[in-house]
């Protein structure tokens, strides 16, 4: 089992993901340069957080036109597991692999803090190791995490249980007070129709070791590992 971490100019959570997979979960991992045109040998592709292309034009927009993204789209279409974290989520929406868009936070500020996140769907390859409606502590670090999609898309996402994660109170209530960025219906992470592509704003790789203050993100990696085993 091998994880591939795509490196765009401006990615800055690529090493965090590599560390989590290689040293915490003891699985094979490698970097994939954004100009590479092959994903051969990889079982799961991660688009990490960061500021690809300096967030020019729109977050994730220019990265979505990188040569490697053609391969990532093909990989996803064939059922390969693709995880986009933060900027990776933004890139996935820009590339059309996930619906909607991530807009500027409603408070305009960059928010970097631990937040409670509720697991709404624990039957995806990225969440099976969590309990249904379990609330976990995972940090966010973004200025553009305000999820938006038209009403029809939101209905489709809700009807097919494609909202994997939602910002909530520690008790599991998705209230506006606990919505850090204005995301519609407190959406923090969604999957594609087939369930093999997940985009999420919280950073599970930053919550995989007790030394980092939380292990709430471990479930994401443990779920992928179990799905690939």
């Amino acid at each position: 089992m091998k994880f591939g971490i795509v490196v765009f100019p401006g990615s800055n959570c690529d090493h965090d993901c590599y560390h989590a997979i290689k040293h915490v979960f003891k699985k094979d991992a490698g970097y994939i340069w954004h100009k590479d045109t092959s994903l051969k040998g990889y079982d799961c592709v991660i688009l990490p957080g960061g500021f690809s292309y300096g967030d020019y034009l729109r977050t994730g927009a220019i990265a979505s036109a990188s040569p490697v993204m053609n391969e990532v789209v093909g990989f996803a279409k064939k059922g390969g597991l693709v995880l986009g974290i933060c900027n990776g989520f933004q890139i996935l929406t820009e590339a059309g692999l996930l619906p909607g868009a991530l807009m500027r936070n409603r408070g305009l500020k960059f928010i970097c803090k631990h937040v409670p996140v509720r697991v709404d769907n624990n039957s995806t390859p990225f969440t099976v190791k969590y309990g249904k409606n379990e609330v976990v502590d995972i940090p966010i670090a973004h200025a553009d995490g305000n999820y938006f999609a038209d009403a029809e898309t939101i209905k489709r996402l809700e009807d097919s249980e494609r909202v994997a994660f939602r910002y909530s109170t520690p008790e599991g209530e998705a209230t506006d007070d606990y919505n850090p960025n204005g995301a519609l219906l407190n959406i923090a992470g969604i999957t594609n129709e087939k369930g093999n592509v997940l985009g999420m704003m919280p950073h599970p790789e930053r919550a995989s070791e007790p030394e980092l203050g939380s292990i709430g993100g471990r479930g994401v990696f443990e779920s992928i590992i179990s799905a690939l085993s």
């Binding site: 034009l57 927009a61 036109a65 929406t93 868009a101 807009m103 938006f148 999609a149």
Partner: peptide
């Protein structure tokens, strides 16, 4: 359509 604008928003 493909890059300069995001027609979702």
């Amino acid at each position: 359509e493909r890059l300069l604008a995001n027609t979702v928003i």
